[in-house]
């Protein structure tokens, strides 16, 4: 399958990735090879095959919400970049 640098950059944008023109050029070649291989599935006659949902236990897969006290609050904040009082500070997200 033929694709262009613009196609690759558009997909990168959808995927929330920024790539340079040179990276996009390299990816065009790689993607063409991979997507050509993927096309093999289009040649199969799958007739009326239906994608099936994953098998699960009978009954609902949802469980009741349960609250519990997380004793070690420090542990919860270990991965945050910044804390102000008891709040997690994140970069400004409303512009």
């Amino acid at each position: 399958m033929k694709i262009s640098v613009e196609d690759v950059r558009y997909i990168a944008k959808l995927a929330k990735l920024s790539i340079s023109f040179e990276q996009a050029q390299k990816m065009v070649k790689e993607f063409e090879g991979i997507l050509t291989h993927f096309e093999s599935i289009g040649r199969l006659d799958l007739g009326d095959a239906q994608p099936e949902p994953l098998e699960r236990d009978s009954g609902t897969v949802l469980r009741e919400d349960e609250t519990s006290v997380f004793e070690d609050k420090k542990k919860l904040f270990l991965n945050t970049k910044s804390i102000s009082d008891s709040y997690i500070e994140v970069p400004k997200i409303i512009e």
């Binding site: 690759v8 997909i11 990168a12 959808l14 995927a15 929330k16 990735l17 920024s18 790539i19 990816m27 790689e30 993607f31 991979i34 997507l35 993927f38």
Partner: peptide
């Protein structure tokens, strides 16, 4: 995302986004 992920991860994310 671009600085945090390596080349193969970005490749798979993009293939998946395309599909």
């Amino acid at each position: 995302r671009s600085e945090g992920f390596g080349e193969e991860v970005k490749r798979r994310i993009m293939l998946g986004t395309f599909a």
